[in-house]
């Protein structure tokens, strides 16, 4: 039975179903319904909901819970995610899994509270200091928010690295029908590395990101990057829509991909061969699908709710083999299908 749910609430319920038992947050529009849902539901199932004194405190509580082997999550919106950057770098440096949700709003600074996709660079390239990556998932429907939260927890545990759900105010606030996962205790992976008490039966585990010996630190970072190569090889996800015969491939994720899909449908009605590649993982970026499309298309068009961030990764993915164009709105503005169609008509 499908229920009608807001994206933010669906994210929260999906996390609970995925075995998340510790949520640490701090209020910010437009993600507040997520924390509100957690505050109501967590106590009922014996979990922990804690409103921290700041975003920085919240992410460090996630670090602590994760170090103890527990599935933990935090959520925020753009300015709050900037504050969490330090903690996320420490988690990456400590090889700790967790899920971080960013319901993006307009920036920079306090910006606005309307939907935006201007945190792409932050999520995929520069969430904190040092050499590291996190997994980044970009849902485009409320159902996909549910499905990807579960996947994010599983993959974060599998690769021992933080994972982010990069959503936006539109997806967080909108309601769509969703099928929720079955309730019940999910079997979670063993975490022999966790600092959860050794009861005198083994040597104690140390979780740390401080390594003052350069060759030791380099070796650790290299080991992590070897893992990232496996992630890039195995975990690329995207949806291809009408790409087989397309002259123009549009590339868009999340909320803007919905607008683009409508525009592609309208273009097809006019006989224009447009198609859509919708990255579902932003890191790893779906390079393989883009390279395949580049072998037969004539041009690409990235559409984002930003001044142009993912478009760089599109160019890199195809080694600038095709002209890559860009159309974007920013500051909380949402492009319309008619505006995207106009761009398609210019390029075909």
């Amino acid at each position: 039975m499908k229920v009608l749910m807001k994206g933010n609430e669906a994210l929260a319920q999906a996390a609970i179903s995925a075995g998340c038992r510790h949520f640490f947050g701090y209020p910010i529009t437009p993600q507040t319904e997520l924390a509100a849902y957690m505050s109501k539901q967590m106590p009922k199932i014996g979990g922990t909901y804690l409103q921290a004194e700041s975003e920085i405190a919240a992410i460090n509580m996630v670090l602590g819970a994760s170090a103890a082997g527990i599935r933990a999550m935090t959520s925020s919106s753009s300015p709050g995610i900037s504050l969490k950057g330090e903690g996320i770098s420490y988690m990456a440096g400590s090889d700790l899994p967790a899920v971080i949700i960013n319901v993006q709003r307009g920036g920079p600074g306090l910006g606005g509270i309307q939907p935006s996709q201007a945190d792409y660079w932050q999520a995929t390239k520069a969430l904190g200091h040092g050499d590291f990556q996190i997994l980044v998932f970009a849902p485009s429907t409320v159902q996909e928010m549910v499905d990807l939260v579960s996947k994010a927890f599983d993959k974060a545990d599998e690769y021992r690295m933080p994972a982010m759900i990069l959503a936006d105010g539109m997806l967080g606030q909108m309601m769509e029908p969703v099928s929720l996962p079955e309730e019940g205790e999910k079997k979670l992976p063993e975490k022999p590395w966790a600092a959860s008490g050794h009861q005198g039966k083994r040597t104690h585990n140390i979780i740390n990101s401080l390594y003052l010996t350069p060759d030791k630190l380099e070796a650790l970072v290299r080991e992590r990057y070897a893992r990232y190569e496996t992630v890039k090889e195995k975990e690329q996800l995207c949806e291809e829509y009408l790409t087989d015969d397309a002259d123009l491939i549009l590339v868009a994720y999340g909320a803007s991909s919905r607008v683009v899909r409508s525009a592609v449908n309208k273009a097809r009605e006019k006989g224009l061969k447009a198609g859509l590649i919708r990255p579902i993982t932003l890191w790893p970026f779906p390079v393989n699908a883009l390279q395949k499309a580049a072998s037969h298309a004539k041009a690409m068009l990235a559409v984002e709710m930003s001044m142009g961030q993912m478009v760089d990764d599109v160019r890199l993915a195809i080694n600038c083999k095709l002209p890559v164009h860009f159309y974007g709105r920013t500051g909380g503005m949402i492009p319309t299908p008619a505006q995207v169609l106009e761009q398609i008509e210019k390029l075909i």
Partner: peptide, 21 residues
């Protein structure tokens, strides 16, 4: 919301998006 729910119960594709803020 009532309209969206009617769409859901009628087995249609639906979305509901509020202005917020």
């Amino acid at each position: 919301k009532v309209t969206a729910y009617a769409g859901l119960l009628a087995d249609k594709e639906i979305s509901w998006l509020p202005s917020y803020g």
